[in-house]
Design a protein around this nucleic acid. Structure first.
Lengths: 125, 125
DNA sequence: CGGAATCCGACAAGATACTG
DNA sequence: CAGTATCTTGTCGGATTCCG
């Protein structure tokens, strides 16, 4: 897969659309972090809230709702007291993992550009 | 690659960071669209402006500058009248293509969730 | 425990006008 | 042609409060 796939062939407009749809699905400050945790095992709401550094209750709820609406997480409510809600993977989530993995490998290979290093520094301060 | 990679293993914090770096690099409303065009062949500024539907001069310039700063596009200025500037790929861009391709395949396979369909409709109106 | 509702600031993104 | 500069608008995400 070291040869560019699209080189010297015509642009296919429908491929734009696919690309943009995929990006829309995974865009959101905390979504991939959520999915990454779920890849390891199902998580409860409070568990996600404690584990993901910097996320607020508000945002966690919203991102989970969007993921659920997009079919990227399952939401299971247990009729208990106190209430328990568990989030897990779907077929679509599992199918996405190779793409996420490819992104991570690329990120590791090509290091940290100056702009990203600056942002990471700003986040630490 | 149909078996989840991370299932039942511990979360590695450094993998979060890689994921987030990669996402930061490709986040930006028009970046992947730009890269996708460049995968086919080098493009001039005005060419990108005309081809990418909905982008403004302002945003195109900014996204190109960020991509350039991150080492994801080359910018070649020809000393001619009228001026000509051409954008092309780098090694990092080429290395990213498999990941983009994986995202597109996933997008095609898992169709269009309701939320995305609604956004696409809103964009048409 | 796992949310919902409301308010608000910051920054991303668009519109418009001007330039080497 | 390929940008800058400036102003305005819109959306994302955060803080706080309340609830079954």
């Amino acid at each position: 897969m070291d040869v560019p796939i699209a080189k010297n062939r015509d642009v296919k407009p429908e491929e734009y659309a696919e690309l943009r749809r995929a990006l829309t699905l995974i865009s959101g400050k905390w979504k991939l972090e959520i999915l990454w945790l779920l890849y390891h095992r199902p998580h409860r709401f409070g568990e996600l809230l404690r584990t993901i550094n910097g996320v607020t209750q508000h945002m966690l709820t919203r991102q989970l709702r969007e993921l659920e609406a997009d079919g990227l997480v399952t939401r299971t409510v247990f009729a208990e007291v106190p209430p328990r809600v568990e989030y897990g993977m779907t077929d679509a989530t599992i199918a996405l993992e190779p793409a996420i993995w490819a992104l991570m490998e690329w990120s590791r290979e090509f290091g940290t550009p100056a702009r990203i290093a600056a942002e990471a520094k700003a986040a630490r301060d």
